[in-house]
Write a protein that binds this DNA or RNA. Structure first.
Lengths: 222, 222
DNA sequence: AATTTTCATATTGTATACAAAAAAAGATTT
DNA sequence: AAATCTTTTTTTGTATACAATATGAAAATT
């Protein structure tokens, strides 16, 4: 049933990094991880290598692995990329959405809206993710879908830290409303534009966001 | 000077896969590779794992590694993605190009044009790649640049097979001319559009391209 | 006292060893 | 002779062993 022990390590570590249990810059000691998962160092090293390839871990030759830290410039680049990828997803979604997908999308949007009024951040986080994933899938390009999800995953340790401004969920949800509408009526241009603006960390709020980052989350120099 | 043996294996195998010395679907025997590079199986496995993460290699649990094969649908998705990524690069390039980069771009375009008249495919391939890489770099988003290069790398085993139609280089080069012009005058919209069309395997010729693929290059079913 | 140097310890990278599973070959049956 | 079952051989996945490098602590020097 279980093809290999190593394959379990990747998602487990991924989870820890993404949720912030393991923080950017933190050392990933091979022996320690081996003990924790009851395996030898060999599968641990394999897992770390894979996480390094996906960008979540940084391997410094002869100096061990750490949870990847991102420079300010890189972080900006990645958010810019994210806005574009999501924009492309939305554009194709508007063109290619099926009748069944329309129903799913409407439901997902309603679920977000229902939570937005009462600032329930954690629940909203999940419903919001579901809505976005749905749009990626609706692009009907699985490669694009995966790349977009991967980048979202990679950004999530940083995204989680976003400021919790009262009423912020409401405006986010309103933006969703417009976006979903654009997709439903097949307006690809509009869907792409709305998404880009929506994802760009709500535009000018990016500097606010940066200011909230713990200093050890980002590298010293670019 | 040389941090590890394993780190040499990755680019070496990458090269073989990208140039087609190792063909899609071909088995990658660990013991054989270990012998070839004069190392033990351990670093070989590490290298294969990394190549798998980048998508060039496919690891089937307990059944060994093969050079990645791509289904027809995946290939189409990847080319579609490529067109979009290059389009984004061109858009940002038009907005952010520096005076020095303008000179480089003009030079690169001229180098392509010089070769295009005489159908020198291999030389053109290299000059063409240089021009495209230059545009990626000019986007001034290193993350986008790397992702675009990675995808190009991954597609190159397939790209190499493109049909060699007489005069094809000339029209390709003319498209470059328009594109470079758009970037130089800062017309982001135009630069993006021209690139998307240019990259979409010259639009409707995609089916021609597919027809030329050896059957073992693509998976049986989608 | 601060800085450099030397030595001890810990950790990484690679090789080898071994167990489990898959592939191949041979034997047996229909 | 074809097909199935059994046995042998390969090959993969993991553990352990060892060498090379980096880290940290103690001693020596300025």
């Amino acid at each position: 049933m279980n093809p290999s022990r190593a394959s379990e390590l990747v998602p487990a570590l991924e989870q820890d990094i993404v949720t912030g249990t393991l923080k950017p810059g933190q050392k990933l000691d091979e022996a320690m991880l081996a003990k924790r998962f009851n395996v030898s160092r060999t599968p641990v090293r394999e897992a770390l290598g894979k996480l390094a390839a996906s960008g979540l871990v940084e391997i410094r030759p002869r100096r061990g692995a750490i949870v990847a830290t991102i420079s300010l410039r890189e972080l900006m680049n990645m958010f810019e990329m994210m806005a574009n990828l999501e924009g492309i997803c939305a554009r194709y979604a508007a063109r290619r959405i099926t009748p069944e997908e329309k129903l799913e999308l409407i439901a997902a949007q309603k679920a977000c809206a229902a939570l937005s009024a009462s600032d329930q951040y954690d629940d909203y986080y999940n419903k919001n993710m579901h809505l976005h994933n749905l749009i990626y899938k609706t692009s009907h390009n699985e490669f694009l879908e995966k790349q977009t999800q991967d980048l979202r995953l990679r950004l999530s340790p940083y995204r989680r830290l976003q400021i919790r401004i009262p009423g912020r969920l409401k405006s986010s949800s309103e933006e969703h409303g417009e976006l979903v509408e654009a997709i439903l009526k097949g307006d690809a241009e509009q869907a792409e534009m709305l998404t880009r603006n929506h994802v760009t960390i709500q535009g000018e709020r990016f500097t606010d966001f940066l200011a909230t980052l713990p200093s050890n989350y980002v590298q010293a120099s670019a």
